[in-house]
């Protein structure tokens, strides 16, 4: 009995990893092109933009909240940088974009932590605001960018590996370290796992809640900069489905929507489940709408399963 429980627990815990491995193997059989270095580097560098945003989202979800505004913020910061570069150069405009991302996070976090508003609804609103701002700044058209720094960021490579991947990898390692080894990271987990207990222990819960939205805002802004570097242009409508895919990646990896459980490694696995999926579906010429359907299905199933298994766990705890 104990052993079957162990296997079950392993499958539950490593569910996403198993799916990833299976998907990887299936893809390499389905398309001979899949396992080439070119394709894999391409796959990872495309995933790295949403990946950076997903890192920020991981902090938010771990603390028990949600941030839907990341897609809009992503588009907004891309457009902002595109507009600012002719005025004040690449460096300054990137700093401004990232600072605005942080500021947006402070605002959202304050509303959520101090006024106890539902983060989903609040970020739905800020999503609207930033979408509007992005359209406004760009006259509702994609903005061309011709800047060597941004170009190098988006398409350059160091030691044969694209810069985008380097950025993602460094941030991954940092985020992982923060969550594993710093007081800050551990307290974020405590806040998500039991806000009331954390508060009683003297952890300033609201500060942590605000801080996770700041991290998420910064990551979303950075993602926008990376994306406009990759495409040499910034589109105001690019972030439409970003929030959904990012949250889906985080949740599918195994980070619980109720907070406190999960981490960066899970997010990375979840991210690559979808990256491999969409890469191989593209290689097989499956239209992108189907990919969205699959993403939506996975979201419903995983969220449903999350709740369902918690209910079952509550029942079986009682029975034992």
């Amino acid at each position: 009995m104990n052993r079957t429980l162990g296997v079950g627990a392993f499958i539950r815990k490593q569910r996403a990893l198993l799916i990833l491995v299976a998907g990887f193997i299936a893809s390499s059989f389905a398309s001979p092109y899949f396992l080439t270095a070119d394709n894999l580097l391409n796959l990872v560098s495309q995933a790295s933009i949403n990946g950076v945003i997903a890192l920020g989202m991981t902090f938010v979800v771990l603390s028990g909240e949600l941030d839907l505004s990341v897609g809009a913020l992503n588009a907004f910061s891309g457009v902002l940088v595109a507009r600012l570069i002719p005025v004040c150069g690449a460096g300054a405009s990137m700093i401004i974009a990232i600072a605005l991302g942080a500021l947006a996070g402070v605002g959202t976090g304050w509303l959520v932590a101090r006024l106890h508003l539902n983060s989903f609804v609040v970020t739905l609103c800020t999503m609207f605001v930033f979408n509007g701002l992005a359209l406004l700044l760009s006259d509702s058209r994609p903005v061309e960018i011709d800047n060597p720094v941004l170009g190098a960021l988006g398409t350059g490579a160091v030691l044969g590996v694209p810069v985008l991947i380097w950025i993602f990898a460094v941030l991954c390692a940092t985020a992982w370290y923060v969550l594993r080894y710093t007081w800050y990271g551990r307290n974020v987990l405590a806040v998500g796992g039991g806000a009331k207990v954390a508060e009683l222990t003297g952890i300033a819960v609201h500060r942590y809640k605000i801080s996770v939205f700041v991290i998420s805002g910064v990551c979303a802004a950075l993602g926008g900069i990376m994306l406009s570097g990759l495409l040499s242009s910034a589109s105001p409508t690019v972030g439409g489905s970003t929030a959904l895919s990012v949250i889906t990646s985080v949740v599918v990896g195994g980070t619980s929507l109720s907070g406190g459980e999960g981490g960066i490694l899970q997010t990375v696995v979840g991210l690559f489940v979808f990256a491999v999926l969409s890469n191989s579906l593209s290689l097989l010429n499956v239209p992108s709408f189907n990919q969205t359907i699959i993403e939506g299905l996975v979201l419903v199933v995983v969220v449903g399963w999350d709740y369902f298994s918690r209910r079952m766990a509550a029942l079986s705890r009682l029975a034992n």
């Binding site: 509303l111 609040v122 609103c125 800020t126 999503m127 609207f128 605001v129 979408n131 509007g132 701002l133 992005a134 359209l135 406004l136 509702s140």
Partner: peptide, 12 residues
């Protein structure tokens, strides 16, 4: 776009 912004803020 300006209407979008206004609306988002008003709901908030």
């Amino acid at each position: 776009p300006e209407q979008m912004i206004a609306q988002g803020l008003i709901i908030l």
